[in-house]
Design a protein around this nucleic acid. Structure first.
Lengths: 330, 330
DNA sequence: ATCCCGGCCGTGAACGTTAACGTGATGGTT
DNA sequence: AACCATCACGTTAACGTTCACGGCCGGGAT
């Protein structure tokens, strides 16, 4: 009794088989409107039997929703993001959502284009690591679609956010360095865009210490380290925006004949999976990245639900714990 | 002259503004059917002016296509995949396609579910790193949707494939080890599924050498290495399925007090971005992962085009060059 | 007995696009 | 001069679902 795969089973086929109308089948699936438990069960059974799958297009035509979730990030090649993405995928699957991913390279134009694309495709919501777009543009996105911003303070109280506790993480890193006797610190900042929590926290804990900014990549970290050490040879400890920049710094240090951590200590941020296997093993700030991904989806689900029910409850602004993992690099 | 964003601009609005019919607007966009260059330009101009965006749902309703591409992979947390994904994203964007990603953990059920999901959502095609599904199931997918398989031999001559040249890469690795004087090799295989190119190539170059299989992860590599060295203490060189397993092997070696490469050499596969920064720097087989991603999309585009035009040209089975990068671990 | 109300379900319409077909004008062929 | 392609465009219908509305039926209040 295998159905012919070339012709689509429609809601009308189900209705006919179950002896009800289209609308009742729709009600049975979506749980909207009044329907008796008995007919609901019967309809669901025939749906199962006929292996009926509602057309996302026809459904989207009415509802403007596609059962999809947009994930915007700056650089999937940075191992931090895949770790988060894994959490996003798993949680999204649990909610019956597919994930469409956009890579932006922290470019404002591409961040905007990604958001527009996601909007047009009728996603249920957006999770975004925005690094270039201004707050107003994020608010504008949120006006059209539920939005959760990641690793950035909320652009408005109404939009949800989930972040690593950068302030604490940075403070822990700096205090660790200071406790080890370092008096001249430096920071390799990678935030090319708008959010400078790490930078501000660093400046707060190490007043007057030099900060050099560069792209949050290995080469960016290398260049930033080279510049900083050139201008401030007295520096004996580097705090990097992320682990990738820390790796670049270590490379640059080596090239200049300086040993890590003996001549110069290095602390990263993210605790990538391979951080412990680097040479030297990287001291870094840890945040549960899988949990971050999961939490982002939960927050988005809340935002979606809130919008549907028009209850404008507090969207929530979560800070995930940051802990210092001391290895050999500092 | 800003349009009200709350009401959608439809094809009829454009038609009215341009003084033509819906169908002509459609023709102007899609390049199908006869239309004079002049009206085409005029219609395109008014589309621009009104900022008209065709509804993906209405379009999909007719065409069953969503302008989307499905990417199925086993473990986004393995840095190999993000590197490929980057190439996929960039190439897909160039073709005007969005990418929906599914993580399967090499689980057959989830591979099938991902494919089904992608099918239902009307993707233009699928790019898949399938590690568990049987060839027949892949052929069945291909019957419904253009498919390109990655890092696996084509399940049928009609389906396109793009792979690293595993046979050559593996041979280079083994020969390097042998040239360094190693007489007792071992392999840490990570292919839990169907494709065993690396394993066979290894067996061909190092006949009789022991092979232990485990999950293609750090812990998997650690466990496999522990087992292999327990059973074959004479082994002085390990070839791992990928860099992650190599890292696991190095960890296991260290725990047992064996130095790398002095007591036991290790060669990986993939040349992850951080491979050079590991301790010791990892000798590994390199394939251009970004290029792999790009090539996959090009192959898929070819398959899509071929299916549309019903020309069943040769789908192409590409092998990307594999080179050995010698560092310190072997 | 009539009215009304709420629970349950059906009917028509609408969402916005493209495929299939139809039509009028133009230009070339017999 | 009649005919016939061909071109350029218009008209109708259909894709499959949900929304808005309406109808029926049974039971309690009037």
């Amino acid at each position: 009794m295998e159905a012919d795969h070339s012709v689509r089973v429609t809601i009308d086929d189900v209705a006919r088989a179950a002896g009800v109308s289209r609308q009742t089948v729709s009600r049975a699936m979506n749980g909207k409107g009044e329907i008796s438990a008995a007919t609901r069960r019967r309809v669901l059974a025939t749906i199962e039997e006929l292996d009926y799958r509602p057309s996302v297009f026809a459904r989207g035509m009415r509802t403007q929703r596609a059962g999809t979730l947009g994930l915007i990030l700056s650089d999937i090649a940075n191992p931090f993001f895949p770790a988060v993405a894994r959490g996003v995928f798993d949680a999204a699957a649990a909610h019956g959502l597919s994930v469409v991913v956009h890579n932006t390279d922290a470019h404002a134009g591409r961040e905007a284009a990604a958001a527009r694309e996601i909007l047009e495709r009728g996603a249920e919501g957006v999770i975004g690591f925005f690094e270039a777009l201004a707050d107003e543009e994020l608010v504008e996105i949120h006006r059209r679609l539920p939005l959760v911003v990641a690793d950035r303070r909320a652009p408005a109280p109404t939009v949800a956010s989930v972040s690593s506790d950068f302030a604490t993480g940075t403070r822990l890193a700096v205090e660790h360095l200071q406790a080890r006797g370092h008096r001249y610190l430096g920071m390799l900042d990678g935030a090319v865009g708008v959010d400078h929590v790490r930078r501000h926290a660093f400046a707060g804990s190490a007043p007057g210490a030099p900060i050099v900014t560069g792209p949050p990549t290995i080469t960016g970290g290398g260049a930033a380290a080279a510049q900083l050490l050139g201008e401030h040879p007295e520096v004996t400890a580097l705090f990097a925006f992320n682990d990738l920049m820390a790796v670049g710094a270590i490379r640059a240090l080596r090239e200049r004949g300086r040993r890590v951590p003996d001549d110069c200590a290095v602390v990263g941020y993210d605790d990538l999976t391979l951080a412990a296997d680097l040479d030297p093993p990287l001291t870094t700030v840890h945040t549960d990245k899988y949990e971050l991904g999961r939490t982002l989806v939960e927050a988005l689900d809340g935002a979606i639900r809130a919008r549907r029910e028009e209850t404008s409850a507090d969207p929530g602004h979560r800070l995930l714990p940051a802990t210092l993992v001391v290895r050999r690099s500092a």
